[in-house]
Amino acid sequence: MAEAVRTVGRADRAAVTGLLARAFQDDPAFGWIFPDSADRARRLPRLFRILFDSDAIGMRLLTAHGAAATLWRPPGRIHTSRWDMIRHGPALLWALGPALRRALAVADAIDAHMPNGDFWYLHVAGCDPAHQGRGHGAAAVRGGLTRAAGRLPAYLETPTERNLGFYRGLGFEVTGEWTVPGGGPRFWSMLRPADGQNSPGTNRFTRAA
């Protein structure tokens, strides 16, 4: 039986941001942004609190056992608005500190490789390391796909090569491979067609200019 997945709100903020911080402690992109592991462990919870709040515009999902979470942005709200940048400016400076330049380089590269067209953006997907390999992460992603995301294509990017097989198992296919300028990490772009479509390779979802 598939694991239940529920939407979360403000009361779940600490639990979700804590598990995401643990899940991304060894992520290649965050390892480049925050080279010192102790500094990374301090700063990731602060950063994920900001992302949790900003992704209230879409879907914020958590598995029943609290082991995995996904944050989704809806069509037309993929990019962080100028107002959100201003609103979260002090918190971002506190979260990123001297890593601001590298974080902006990653964010700019991600924006530059977004596809065109209408799609749901799987902004963040993470599973607590203590519970990996038990299907919780897949359940959290499927929770979004079986809600609104399954009616439109879904897009994500990952800097972790071993994740490619995991996402292929959920219907995503690699559409691009790129590197953050300035010696940054390598990423893979992946797209999943809407339910009933045959392939993510369509002119409507070419890379953004």
Rank of each mutant, 00 (worst) to 15 (best):
G18W: 05
D111Q: 05
I50F: 04
L19W: 09
G150L: 06
A11E: 13
R147N: 15
L100I: 07
Q132N: 09
A95K: 06
G176N: 15
D39M: 08
T7Q: 14
A139Q: 14
H123T: 13
G117K: 07
E161N: 03
H131I: 04
E157D: 15
A125S: 11
F34N: 00
H65M: 11
L71N: 03
R43E: 00
V180Q: 11
H136E: 12
D195H: 06
Q25S: 08
A95G: 09
A14R: 13
D39C: 02
S189W: 01
G137Y: 02
A125K: 05
A138H: 06
G18K: 08
I50L: 14
Q197G: 00
P45M: 03
W178K: 05
P193L: 12
L164S: 00
R192Q: 11
R101F: 05
P98M: 02
P115I: 03
G9F: 03
G133N: 10
A91F: 01
G18Q: 07
V174S: 05
Q197M: 09
G143D: 00
G31H: 07
D108E: 14
G150T: 04
G18V: 05
A209F: 06
L47P: 04
H88S: 12
N198E: 13
D55I: 10
D195M: 03
S81V: 09
S199T: 15
A68N: 09
D53L: 04
R101V: 01
A15H: 15
A4Q: 12
D12Q: 03
G183E: 07
M85G: 15
P200R: 07
P200N: 10
Y121D: 11
E161G: 02
P153D: 04
A67S: 11
D36C: 04
W188K: 00
G97C: 02
P193E: 11
F205C: 08
L93Q: 08
